[in-house]
Every structure is written in structure tokens, then in C-alpha cells.
């Protein structure tokens, strides 16, 4: 029973940050109607900024996270407004966000390597305590990760459903033409939404940095997992990403319990295949 509970708790914890990652990608799709294959690289950038602020500048953990996320938010907005928005209209790029974001991703990886070097960087755990009770083991770091992740999820839901700005984002996602007629500056919405989406990836990057370490290529596996969450939850659906993220975390956790660590990724991606077969639009996606 404790093994089951331990797996479940571990699964929910990892699920929470999978959800945060997935939302960023799904919002990019839903609002800007584009795939961002550099999503994982913004996760990486967030981790590096956190490292810079906490290790090099010596700021405490919380301000470092805030600065890291803010930094990525600004970089994201700049890239969207400066490069992506212009490039998508040009014939030369073939209107392909895939190519443009691929280029941005490579650029970010190389820039990271130049600035911070290819060595792995580490940051200390926010808290070294390990709790043990009733046969369950829980590291304080993991709980903090889950707490921040869930808080972020709630904040995003509130932003989208309750704020005027969140409405504007939904409207732009559903009908850009109409949104413009309502007085919504959709170019600005695109810019800010992209910034927000990659900032979410940065949140995950900051809180996971102590556990997984930092290197310029760490975005790769994160990109894949984000896609899985996005597709299973339904492209464009925030609620779907949350459910799918937690589902992925739990499935991964239990599958490693019973099948061993080697099968972890196989089972996760099988989930995608099953979803494509049974319900291609994802859990909360719309049928087209």
C-alpha cells in the first residue's frame, strides 16, 4: 500500500510540472496557432537565468526565480515581436513556425553554451530536508516544486478565466478578426501570450534546476514531454493540459514501479499513440 501511495504522490508531483510545461505549449498553439519547438530551450534558459541570479549574483531563491521567469518572459516577447511575427508573413520562410522556432532553439542552445559553457552547472536544493512518515519518503524540494507548480497552474487558470486580459487572450484564440473588431490589439496579445507561454517553461526550469542540473541541451526531453501533454490534453486546451500532465506523471510513476525505469518513456509515448487512436483531438480538444 505504501508503495502504491508513494508512486501516486511522486506521480502527482511530476505531473504538476508536466502540466505547467504543457500549458505553455498548448497556449502557444491555441492563441498564436503555431508550434513552438524551442519550448524546451526556454525551460533551459529559465534554469540558466536562475543559476546566474542565485549563484553568481547571490540573490536568494525566490527573487532568483522571479527574475529568471521575468527574464525569459521579456526574451520571449522580444523574439515574438522581433522575429517570429515578421518572419511568419514572409514567403521566404514558407510560413513555417516549425523552422523559425527550430532556428531560435538552436540559437538559444548555442548562446547558452557560449555564455555559460558546456559544463553542467548545479544549484543547491532549496531545502535539504527529507521527510519520512508512515513508510513514505518525501523530499522538501519535491514538495516545493509541486507547490510552486500548482500555484502557477491556479494563477494561469485565474488569468485566463477571470481577468480582462485573459478574456482578450481567449477571444484572440477563438476569432482573431472578431477580437480586433472588439478593440483588442491582437499583435500585442500574440506578443504577451508567447512571452507568458515560454515564461511558464522557465518556471519549470527554475524549480527543477536543483534536482536535474543545468546544461545547454537539457531542453530536448522536456520538449518531447511537453508535446505529449499537449496532444493528450487536446491542443489549445488549458484544462486538458493540466489533466494530461498529471495523468502523464502518474502513468510514468506507476509504470516504472511495475516495469522498471527503462520502460518509462516507452509507456509515456504509447499514451500518445493510444490517444491518437481513440480520440485524436485529445481529452478536451475539439473535433474538427
Amino acid at each position: 500500500m505504501t508503495v502504491f501511495l508513494q508512486s501516486l504522490i511522486n506521480g502527482i508531483i511530476s505531473g504538476s510540472y508536466y502540466a505547467v510545461l504543457g500549458i505553455g505549449l498548448t497556449v502557444t498553439w491555441g492563441v498564436l496557432k503555431m508550434i513552438n519547438v524551442a519550448h524546451g530551450d526556454f525551460y533551459m534558459l529559465g534554469a540558466y537565468l536562475f543559476y546566474t541570479f542565485s549563484r553568481i549574483a547571490g540573490l536568494p531563491v525566490v527573487p532568483s526565480i522571479i527574475m529568471g521567469v521575468l527574464g525569459v518572459f521579456l526574451v520571449g516577447m522580444l523574439l515574438q515581436r522581433g522575429i517570429i511575427a515578421h518572419a511568419l508573413g514572409r514567403e521566404a520562410f514558407g510560413n513555417s513556425p516549425f523552422i523559425i522556432t527550430l532556428a531560435i532553439g538552436i540559437m538559444l542552445e548555442n548562446i547558452a553554451q557560449i555564455i555559460w559553457g558546456e559544463n553542467n552547472r548545479g544549484v543547491p536544493y532549496f531545502n535539504e530536508t527529507v521527510f519520512e512518515f508512515g513508510g513514505l519518503t518525501m523530499a522538501a524540494q519535491r514538495l516545493i516544486v509541486a507547490a510552486i507548480a500548482f500555484a502557477t497552474l491556479i494563477a494561469v487558470m485565474i488569468l485566463i478565466k477571470k481577468t480582462r486580459f485573459g478574456w482578450a487572450i481567449s477571444a484572440t484564440a477563438q476569432d482573431r478578426f472578431s477580437a480586433t473588431l472588439m478593440g483588442i490589439n491582437t499583435n500585442r496579445i500574440y506578443m504577451v501570450t508567447f512571452g507568458l507561454a515560454v515564461a511558464l517553461a522557465a518556471v519549470a526550469g527554475c524549480i527543477l534546476a536543483p534536482i536535474y542540473g543545468i546544461n545547454p541541451w537539457m531542453g530536448g526531453s522536456v520538449q518531447l514531454k511537453s508535446f505529449v501533454v499537449c496532444i493528450v490534453g487536446g491542443l489549445g486546451s488549458v484544462g486538458g493540459s493540466i489533466v494530461a500532465g498529471i495523468l502523464l506523471g502518474i502513468v510514468e510513476s506507476f509504470s516504472t514501479q511495475f516495469f522498471g525505469s527503462g520502460w518509462q518513456n516507452v509507456i509515456a509515448y504509447s499514451l500518445v499513440l493510444v490517444m491518437f487512436w481513440v480520440r485524436p483531438e485529445g481529452i478536451f480538444g475539439k473535433k474538427h
Binding site: A87, I104, I106, N110, I111, I114
Partner: peptide, 25 residues
């Protein structure tokens, strides 16, 4: 003007990429 800016951005990006590629290896 927009075309020009996009072109400059592209060259900057390409320059960055090739420069980075060299730095990496």
C-alpha cells in the same frame, strides 16, 4: 521597411548560428 528588418534579423540569426557552431567545436 518590414522586409528589410526581417532580412537583417535573418542574417543576424544565421551569423549567430554559424559563429556558435564554430565556438562549440
Amino acid at each position: 521597411k518590414k522586409k528589410f528588418i526581417a532580412l537583417i534579423m535573418t542574417f543576424c540569426m544565421i551569423g549567430c548560428l554559424t559563429g556558435c557552431g564554430k565556438a562549440a567545436g
